[in-house]
């Protein structure tokens, strides 16, 4: 059953990276708003992580599907679809020229995403712990069993 633990560790890492990416974008936007950063830097930094984030999320979602974690898959599906829609409409990147007009909406969107990932984070931690414990218990039981032989 060790692969299940490894899988959840992978989910955990992916989730952490998604959270980090979102946090980074939010920080950039906040800096922009507070005039600590100019729009050129800010949007180029954000735009640099948008595509990777989408890819990671795609992998994340796909892994749930492939490994048969239906519930988690369905949970992550909306964002996948939304991202795909943004991409197909070419609206996934921040527009430097109009960044101040859309800044509130962009921030809100990222904060919602962040909240969602944090929720997933909790779920994943729980599942991870459960898996680890199960694994240990299994080992223990085996151990006990082995030991019991004696």
């Amino acid at each position: 059953m060790a692969w299940e633990v490894i899988l959840w560790v992978i989910f955990f890492i992916l989730n952490i990276s998604l959270i980090a990416a979102n946090l980074y974008q939010i920080v950039c936007l906040t800096d922009l708003e507070a005039d600590y950063m100019n729009p050129y830097d800010s949007s180029s930094r954000i735009n640099a992580v948008v595509i990777p984030e989408m890819l990671i999320h795609g992998v994340f979602c796909g892994l749930f599907l492939v490994t048969g974690h239906w519930f988690m898959f369905i949970l992550t599906l909306p964002i996948t679809i939304y991202s795909a829609m943004l991409y197909s409409k070419r609206r996934h990147l921040i527009d430097v020229t109009e960044v101040f007009r859309s800044i509130d909406a962009e921030k809100k969107y990222r904060i919602v995403k962040l909240a969602f990932y944090l929720l997933l984070f909790v779920l994943i931690i729980i599942r991870l712990v459960i898996e680890v414990v199960n694994n240990l218990i299994d080992d223990d039981e085996e151990g006990v069993h082995l030991f019991g032989i004696f």
Partner: peptide, 14 residues
Amino acid sequence: TSYHGNFMLRSTDL
């Protein structure tokens, strides 16, 4: 809160 015309905003109010 908002600006309209031919220019680009460099920060929220510049």
